[in-house]
């Protein structure tokens, strides 16, 4: 360990020298990594936002259970107890027909005010049921439908449902894409470092002859790979911070409707940048390790 610290400046200068020696090579592989990470960044930002949308939408998912208007208060309470026994049910909120009408007027305008007043109100008293797991919304709704005294059980529209499913598909697709890009970046760095090793082959063989330990030989290459990855991550990071922030400001924080609220750029972009730098460095480390492993193995 002590030896390690003592050698550190020398190893760093070695890596630096190497980087300069094949600057073009390093630059091109940094650039390729930058492009790969840029795409990965866009996909990540998209995926995270989509999952944020989904969460928002899912939070708004409520089953509206219309109650038979002939039911009396104690029967309504019984029904509430029955609803409570259904597995997936999280909360139940009672809202009578007048409250429902008020909501309608508030949301859609005064035209509905004509229905105000005794006997004119066409709405039912309802239970608003929230679920623990929104994915099972259909089963739960049909279970509620079968209960005695339930006129109707509905949840939003089926479009919401397909949208949620589409979003989750998009999320998974995005993840696979990002994984593929990271794999590509590892491959690129591996090749860069392999070439760097070729250049220094004589030096390495002499180092081995005089008894340099493997890590001493390996370290500058790993460092080089890490730096390449780091440089590659800088460009997409910059794009992420500036691009996303200006996009957010331009769109006023929402996409098309209030349902799609974008994530606030701060601290979200910082997390993405940290992730990019982390991936860049890690990918560089892994790539150069893979490249050096074969060359530095003792042939015995």
């Amino acid at each position: 360990m002590f030896l390690f610290l003592k050698c550190l400046p020398r190893l760093f200068s070695q890596a630096n020298k190497d980087l300069k020696r094949h600057f073009v090579l390093t630059f091109s592989s940094s650039l390729s990594i930058a492009i790969a990470l840029l795409m990965a960044m866009v996909m990540t930002v998209l995926a995270v936002n989509v999952s944020y949308f989904t969460e928002n939408i899912e939070e708004q998912l409520v089953i509206q259970v219309s109650i038979n208007p002939t039911f009396q208060n104690d029967e309504i309470e019984n029904l509430q107890d029955e609803l409570q026994t259904i597995k997936n049910v999280k909360t139940i909120e009672y809202s009578d027909s007048e409250e429902e009408l008020d909501k309608l007027i508030k949301d859609y305008g005064e035209t509905f005010a004509q229905y105000q007043g005794e006997d004119k109100n066409p709405l039912y008293d309802v239970f608003l049921v929230e679920l623990k797991d929104n994915a099972k919304i259909e089963e739960t709704t049909s279970a509620i439908q079968k209960l005695d005294g339930v006129m109707e059980a509905t949840y939003g529209t089926s479009t919401v449902n397909t949208m949620v499913q589409m979003f989750s598909g998009l999320r998974i697709g995005g993840m696979i894409f990002v994984a593929a890009l990271i794999f590509l970046a590892i491959f690129l760095i591996r090749n860069t470092v392999k070439l760097a090793i070729q250049v220094r082959k004589d030096e390495i063989s002499i180092m081995k002859t005089v008894g340099a330990t493997n890590w001493y030989i390996l370290f500058p290459f790993v460092l080089e790979g890490m730096l390449t990855g780091f440089f590659g991550a800088l460009l997409p990071s910059l794009f992420c911070v500036l691009g996303y922030t200006s996009l957010y400001n331009a769109l006023n924080g929402t996409l098309m409707s209030d349902m799609f609220t974008l994530i606030k750029p701060y601290p979200f972009t910082i997390y993405v940048v940290l992730m990019l730098l982390g991936i860049g460095i890690l990918v560089g480390m892994l790539g150069s390790y893979l490249a050096t492993r074969k060359y530095l193995r003792w042939t015995r």
Binding site: K208, T209, V210, G211, A212, T213, N214, R297, W298, R300
Partner: peptide
């Protein structure tokens, strides 16, 4: 393998 460099010295 790990010890070879030290032996080499």
């Amino acid at each position: 393998h790990r010890k070879v460099p030290y032996y080499r010295r």
